[in-house]
Design a protein around this nucleic acid. Structure first.
Lengths: 188, 188, 188, 188
DNA sequence: CATGAATGAGGGTTCATTCAT
DNA sequence: TATGAATGAACCCTCATTCAT
């Protein structure tokens, strides 16, 4: 049914924005319903409950992000190029939908535990690239997990600073700097 | 009269641990009371409410952390030494009370907005050091806020990976690597 | 969907009776729910809270009473007839729903402050009639507010005595006496 | 013990003022203690509990008022003079301690039921005077209770209007008018 | 004897979820 | 099917009272 899928999307978007604004716990099903233009009961035709809604919101976007990163790195040859592509990709996605990434950062502590090993995972994507770089001798750094933490930290904390107003402009405008920082850290 | 200060400390510790385990919203006053070995009502002699309790927990430790960082950097002369002292200091504190830092990371999104400009702030401490380094020509990097985001990201994301089991051992054992990464990123 | 308006009326009636029996503060939402045959939470679909419920109960009936008095006096020509009509009207209403007037008397001290100038107000209705009577030379009495206090006092205190068992029978049976007393006091 | 009695008086006065300001239920023992300059626990050395405190406050003043009225009427000979003396006495007392009478009016609904038949009762005092007046043929009115309601209503409602700002100045300044109204109502 | 921390029951209220219509 | 009224459990919090100090 066409309108069914459209409604589901409206609910998801409304929930996403509400959760970012007020937090997941403070954003009630009543608010979501109102913002979606439907009624409370109708939400349960599309989602099993609030947990399910939150998880779909997180899981889908988390996986999609991983898939995008994976595709981006697959188009490049060297480790440096792969990393750069991913960093630039993140910046573009962030600029396109800041609310989505704020949501991902906001709820990660509650949802990361539900991520299964067979789900595409952005951390694993990056870590695999770095691992390959180490094995190819392109990276003179410590363990892949450690290096992955550094790279993720540089990028995500910059986004966090952006959210809190400590950095302005677009993230894409900072992509070059971020790339250089990541490469420096990996001694590439 | 039963000892007030001791009870207050018990409440704070119980709340800290509960919040880390289940999240602030899921950790109820009932649970805190039970874990503290007192009754719900008694909490309200020591804290105005749950918000006040959460804020005291965050604010005090946030400020204390800033103060510690500030003292650590003050004992060193070069920017590199100052940063290294702060990174090592963080690792030591983290190892001493992992729960505390998990709490700080967990609730930051909800509490950072309440931090006033006159409160000691760890981010400002680091940023001031970096700013001074830039002005002294010791750092060849972009803006201080940007560089601060990188340094913070490297350290905090490593801690986050540690929390989620992606990195094991102590943080102190990783301090050298973290220092090197931070210096690399600042092109020191 | 269960009928909303009917439930709201049931809540109002249950609250009215409970408040009269035990006082507003002693009458809990729990009791109101039980007496209404619903659950506590359901009350909040119809009223914002206990204050709102109390105020709706008071405000609506306060205004309706004022409107009734206003209509009654409008049908008469002389000041004496207007007053008599209002006194008799009050007695009839009181006899028809004693509980309602006990409630109005009971909560007046807490609610009168919320009455806005644009709401129909029984005191103003009576005062306007008396004021007009003074201006028409029909009443040889002091200021209208003072005379209004006397008239209200005579009628309301009789009702109060009735409530406390110092006067029995119906108020309507006493209407003639009350009218005479009011006219005497106004030297009509 | 001197200071014991003084403390008890301080508690009573603080409670009286608090109850008038915020209502009996909203005025807590904590507030009373603070306003009295003592601690919560100490109140229980002077009163069995809040109910006891409230009742002592009401009962004593209710009785004292009755006693005063009784003395005042005893000094006069005619019914008219007795009533006038009581009305003037009430006005004087009201002007001397408005808070006290506001308290009496405020809590009457909750406390009147505890008044025993052997306690001095202002209503009975007035009613006895009126009853005697009827028997002496000085009053051409209906039953004594009815007439008592009228007289009480005239005086108390004027005080109520004064409290709510519908009448200003002192009550004593209105005593003549009140006397005339009372006599008119009794056809004296 | 005063203190004020602790109790424990109850307060009003919110909210994810269910279900009669 | 969509609605929104109703549920029921849990929430945070208040308060008169007790009691260890």
């Amino acid at each position: 049914m066409r309108s069914g899928a459209a409604t589901k999307e409206k609910i998801k978007r409304a929930a996403l924005e509400l959760f970012v604004q007020k937090g997941v716990d403070a954003g009630g099903m009543r608010d979501i319903a109102t913002a979606s233009g439907i009624t409370e009961g109708a939400i349960y035709r599309h989602f099993k409950g609030k947990d399910d809604l939150t998880w779909q919101l997180f899981g889908e976007n988390f996986s999609a992000f991983a898939k995008t990163l994976s595709d981006l790195q697959a188009s490049e040859n060297t480790t440096a190029d792969k990393l750069a592509a991913m960093v630039r990709g993140f910046c573009r996605l962030y600029d396109e939908d800041e609310t989505l990434f704020r949501f991902l950062l906001l709820v990660q502590h509650g949802q990361l535990g539900k991520v299964t090993a067979d789900m595409p995972n952005p951390i694993d994507v990056v870590q695999d690239v770095i691992q390959a770089g180490i094995e190819a001798g392109e990276i003179s750094s410590p363990s892949a997990p450690e290096a992955t933490a550094w790279v993720f930290g540089i990028v995500l904390q910059s986004a966090t600073f952006h959210i809190y107003g400590r950095l302005d402009g677009t993230m894409s405008a900072r992509a070059d700097g971020l790339c250089r920082a990541c490469l420096a850290v990996l001694a590439l």
